[in-house]
Structure formats: C-alpha cells, structure tokens
Amino acid sequence: MSIAEIFAKARAEERALLIGCMPAGFPTVDDSIESMIAMHEAGCDVIEVELPYSDPVMDGPVIQKASDIALGRGVRTRDTLRIIEAVAGAGATVVLMTYWNPIEKYGVNAFARDLAAAGATGMITPDLIPDEAAEWIAASDEHRIDRTFLVSPSSTDERIAMTVAQCRGFVYATALMGVTGARTSVSSQAPDLVERVRHANPDMPVGVGLGVGNGAQAAEVAGFADGVIVGSALIRCVLDAPDRATGLSRLRALSAELAEGVRNPAK
C-alpha cells in the first residue's frame, strides 16, 4: 500500500498510524530484518529503516549507538537496500530515513531507482531541506518515491508552507527542539506545530516524532497527529536485552503496546 493509502485508511478508522524505526544492519543484517518483520507483525503500520551514518547529527545516544554497531560490523548501503527488499517482501510498508551524504555518494537518481526497485515507498531526509533538494525532488518524482521533509517548532509559517508543499505522503514534525531519544513526557510544542502544518495544508498527513516511548504517549500523540513515529524506545528493546530472544519479545511487546496506543487516541 502507498503511504497516502494507509494514512487515508487510518483516518477512516479514526486512529493514527504507527511508524516504527530501526537502523539497517543493527545488530546484524539478518537480525535487523527479523526485528523489522517482528515490528510489522506486532502492529507497526510503517517500518522506517534508518540507513546507518557515521555523523548522525539529528540523533541522540540510542540511535547513534545502534548505527555505530551496524557500521562497525561493516553494513553497506547495498545491505540497506537488501534489508528493505526483504521487509517489503514480507508485506510491510517501508520508508527509508537517511542522512544526505550516502545518497549523494551513491548517485541521487540511481539511489531513487534502486530504492523503488527494493520496494520502499518513501524517504525521509533529516538533513536535507527543500532549499537544497532540487536533484532529489527530480529523482524522487521520476522514480515515484514519496518525499518526507521535516518541520520543527522553530520553523516559520512560510517555511512550513514551503516544506509541506514539497512533501508527498506525509510530513515529519519534530515534536521538540532536540535530538532523537525517548522522553518522559510528550512535548507541549507538538500540538501547536501540527496545527500550523494543518493550517498550511489540511490534507497533508503529519507524523510526529522525537520522544515517544510508550503506549500512553502514543495515544496522546495520536490525539492530534496522523502518525506516531517511534525510534529510540524500540531500538532500546534490542540494545538493552541480555540476548536476542529477549530483545525480540520486548520489541514485539512494545510494538503491540504502541499499536494499541495509536488506536485509542486521546481526546
């Protein structure tokens, strides 16, 4: 299903989508495929595969550590494409989250082509703003990859309008000023930011990320956003587990808890 279709379906069901993030190749290529399929089966509507990068400036300690582990084991860009193929092949809707340099190095058009061939429907670019994205916009149009740019509480209304106009599928609202990582409470800036996006374009689905870690927070965010994006808390299930089996069962349990949360949006 395309991103637009599953957002539409969730809207009809009056619930939010759950978007679960996992770095490719963490802790190994095969394990990451297994983790992502487990997340999909346990209720993540969209799997956000993160391409590990050496200098992830938007990410907090958990994603940095997982990315370092994957890179330390030698994961390559082509492994990420293979992982996407396997996870999409298992029936999941997959989007890629990636810093820009690995894409520029691969070749922007070639990457869009290979990403589409692997079965991903979209790509999130945390350090590429539309102002610098002419080549990506052309390539993603040609190969029909949905484009997700970020908006932030510090974005002006003009920038929100400009950014939303360049997104296709959904826009990623970073709920707070800061890096990724689960927080004890959901940012109070998030509802306001979503409101401002709606004002720019009421039809563009909004995913909210940065800080969500449990079912209650997922329900809270589902009360005002179309998608709830969870990364660090899911990754920590694997990172902190004493063994792989425990990690997987924690990952399933948290995915299910979050899936329950997005189905019970706070009023």
């Binding site: 703003i129 102002d131 610098e132 932030s152 510090s154 974005s155 002006t156 970073t174």
Partner: peptide
Amino acid sequence: SGHFGRYGGRFVPEALVR
C-alpha cells in the same frame, strides 16, 4: 543562499534553519 558554485549551502536539520 550561501553557495560557492556547487559548494557550501545548508545541509542541516530544519530545526536549525531559523
């Protein structure tokens, strides 16, 4: 927009643009 030919520019999270 901060470019020296094809170099320079701003490859940053949106949060820093303001």
